[in-house]
Design a protein around this nucleic acid. Sequence first.
DNA 1: GACAAATTCAAACAGTCGTTTCATACTATC
DNA 2: GATAGTATGAAACGACTGTTTGAATTTGTC
Lengths: 209, 209
Amino acid sequence: MATPPAETRERLLDAAELAFAQEGIQQASLRTITAAAQANLAAVNYHFGSKDGLIREVLQRLVGPINAERLQRVSDAEAKYADKIVPLEELLRHFLEPTLQMFASGRSHIPTLISRFHHETSPAVAETMAAVLEPVVGRFLQALMRSVPSLTIERALLRGQFMVGALLETLSLNPEVLKLMQPAGVDSLPRLNMLDELVTFCAAGFRHE
Amino acid sequence: MATPPAETRERLLDAAELAFAQEGIQQASLRTITAAAQANLAAVNYHFGSKDGLIREVLQRLVGPINAERLQRVSDAEAKYADKIVPLEELLRHFLEPTLQMFASGRSHIPTLISRFHHETSPAVAETMAAVLEPVVGRFLQALMRSVPSLTIERALLRGQFMVGALLETLSLNPEVLKLMQPAGVDSLPRLNMLDELVTFCAAGFRHE
DNA sequence: GACAAATTCAAACAGTCGTTTCATACTATC
DNA sequence: GATAGTATGAAACGACTGTTTGAATTTGTC
C-alpha cells in the first residue's frame, strides 16, 4: 500500500529526465535509466510501450506545465490591460519566465534537458515538440504584433526565433559563465538577472525600426 | 596515380559531414559513413585513429576557416578605422556573416551541422569546440567593448551568448520558416536578409541602456 | 482464502556499434 | 624487378542496444 503502481512509472520518468539531461536523449540507455530508478529493464516497455514512448512522456510532463503557465499569463495580462495593449517587456517576460524559473526549481538538470529537447531532431521528439509548442507560438505571435504594431508577421516570426535561440543558449550556459552574473554567495538571484537581461535585449531587438 | 592516398581521407570527411548533419554526430554509424564514402569500414580507424578522431577532424575542417575569416575581418576592420572605433553593426556583421555564408555554399547541410557541433556535449566535441572558439571570443569581446563603451564585461559576455543563440537557432531553422523570408523563386537571397535581420536585432540589444 | 488482473522479474533475442586482426593489394624507391 | 611502406580488404571480436518472452509475484475484489 505504501507504493501504489504509479510510483514505478514516476521513478522511471524522474530517472529518465536526469539521464536524458546528463547523457543525451538518444545516448541514455534503458539499462542506465531502469537501474537508477531501481526498476526492472522491462519496466519501460511495460509502462510506456517503447523508449520513444518514455521520451514523449518525459517531454510532455516537462514542457506541458511550462506552456500552460505561458498561456495563462498571457490571458491574465490581456485581461488586466483590457483593450489596451500589453507592454512588450511584460509580454516577453510572460514567455521567458516560466522556462527560466526552472533554474530555481532545485532540479538543476532541467534547463539542460529543455535545451536538448529543443535541438533533438528525431521524429518522436520533433513531432511532440511541434504539437506542444504550436498553440503557444500562435498566441504569442498575435500578442506580439499587438504590442509592437509596426511589426510585420515575417519579422515577428523571425525575431521570435532569435529570442528562442537566445533563451535556449541561456539554458545550456556554462556554469562558469553563470557565475559571472551573480555577486557570489547567493544562488537563486542570478536567474532574475538573467531574465531581466534577456527581456531588455530582446525587447530592444523587437522594437527596432 | 589518379587517386593519391589523401583522396579516401577526404571522401570520408565529406561523407561524415553529411551523415553527421543528417543523423546526428553520435548517431551516425561508421558503417553508414564508410559505405557512403565507398571505403572500407576499417578506413576510419586507419586514417583517424577512432570515431572521435574523425569527429574532431570534421569539426576543425569546418569551423577552422570560418573562424580564421572572422579574425581576418576584425583585423581588417580595425585597420580600416585606424584608432577610431568600428561601428557596432559592422563588427557584428564580421562575426555573423562567415557562418551565415554557409547557407549559400551549395552544401545545404552545413548550417545544421554547425548547430549540432555547438550543442554537442560529448568531450571530444566540446573540448575541440572550446579550443577553436576561444581566440575568436576573446577578440570579439574586446572589440565589442570598444564599439559600445557603456558595456560592462559581464553584459558583453552575456549578450554575446544571446547573439550566438540567435545565430544558432537561425542555422537550424525549419526550411518552412525560411521560405517565409523570401519572395519565392529565388534561393540565395534570403540569407542576406537573414544577416541584416540578425545584425539589426542584436545591435539594438547590445546598445540598450 | 480464492480468483483475476496488474506488475515485476530474470533471461534471452536479434541487431548494431566501434574496434581489431591479419592477409592482400598497391605504390613508391632503389 | 625485388623490397619496404602505405593503404585497402573481409571477417570477426566483444560489448552494447531496445525489445520480447514467459514465469513468478504482488495487488485489488469478491
